[in-house]
Amino acid sequence: MTTAPAARSNAPSVTTWRWVAAVLAVSQLVASPVSRAVNGEFLKSGATNQALITPAGYAFSLWGLITLLSSVTAVAIVRYGLGSPWETDALIDASVVFVGFSVWLTVAAQDWLWASVVVFIVMAAALAHIMWLLVRHREELTCPRWLAVLATVSFGLYLGWSSIAVFANVTAALIAAGWSASGAGWQLAVLLAASLTAVVATVLLRGTPGYVAGVLWALVAIAIGASQRDSAMLSMTAVVAAVAVAAVAVWQQVRARTR
């Protein structure tokens, strides 16, 4: 007798957050061109582009796919819903991420690099929670299967790229604070920390393809970027890290299918 009223009282909250997340997701598509029009191509200069482990320039085009996929996903959720007991929590996290994207564009354009680090940490934490729910509690979803796959791929790709971006932004902030942009030793330590984090997350998220794709895109771009800056050691480290992540992902997928 108490289940139905509880569900009815919760429904408006879920519906509201679906719309909030959808509007904020679509706003990302506007935020990027507006930022470029106002601030120019700020990511191509300054400490953000000086590090040896800065991804090759082409890699940043992934933002276009990420923001498009997350917008399509959010709009689809408005129509169908995820149908899980934790849907509102996931939508709140998603809203934080979408706002974070626009905030990051603003603070990065002003060279507020430590603020940029904080924004990415918040975004990555929210995305990690969403992915934990989508991967570890998938059986609680009642939405169409294609939507579950779309959401997992979209937010996984977002997390994969953003989690590596945390370390890239830390590197830029340290360079701006006076650390050597050509110092391979300390940047190797940052790259190893990023790689270890990626391997652990790949295990926890059971090698889900979206996340792995985002990480591999970032690591390969770092390998190319380091090579372009004549750092063979860092380039090879990034390649080895990418191979390790891919191998762990395959192992997780095989393990899941043999259970």
Rank of each mutant, 00 (worst) to 15 (best):
Ala128His: 09
Tyr58Ser: 05
Ala90Gly: 11
Val119Glu: 02
Met131Ser: 12
Cys143Leu: 12
Trp146Val: 01
Ala47Gly: 07
Met131Phe: 02
Val38Ser: 06
Asp89Gly: 05
Ala94Asn: 04
Thr54Ala: 14
Ala124Met: 02
Ala47Glu: 01
Trp86Arg: 09
Phe42Glu: 00
Ile53Glu: 00
Lys44Asp: 15
Val135Lys: 05
Val117Phe: 08
Glu140Ala: 14
Val117Ile: 11
Pro85Lys: 04
Trp146Arg: 12
Leu69Glu: 03
Ala94Gly: 05
Ser45Ile: 11
Gln110Gly: 04
Phe98Glu: 00
Trp132His: 15
Ser102Pro: 03
Ala76Leu: 10
Ala115Thr: 14
Leu43Arg: 11
Arg79Ala: 14
Val135His: 07
Gly64Arg: 03
Val75Glu: 02
Leu29Ser: 06
Leu68Gly: 03
Leu62Ile: 15
Gly40Val: 13
Ala126Asn: 10
Val96Glu: 09
Pro55Gln: 09
Gln50Leu: 13
Val34Gly: 06
Gly40Glu: 04
Asp93His: 10
Trp104Asn: 13
Leu127His: 05
Met131Lys: 00
Ala56Ser: 14
Val107Met: 08
Val30Pro: 01
Leu62Ser: 15
Leu65Asn: 09
His137Arg: 15
Thr54Asp: 01
Ala126Tyr: 06
Ser61Ile: 05
Leu133Glu: 13
Pro85Ser: 08
Ile92Glu: 04
Val117Thr: 11
Asn49Gly: 04
Gln110Val: 06
Gln110Thr: 07
Ser102Tyr: 07
Ala90Lys: 04
Pro85Met: 08
Gly64Leu: 10
Leu127Lys: 07
Ala124His: 03
Val118Lys: 13
Ala124Phe: 04
Asp111Trp: 07
Gly46Lys: 10
Tyr80Met: 00
Met131Ala: 05
Ala108Val: 12
Glu140Tyr: 07
Val117Ser: 02
Ser95Leu: 00
Trp86Glu: 03
Trp63Ile: 11
Leu69His: 03
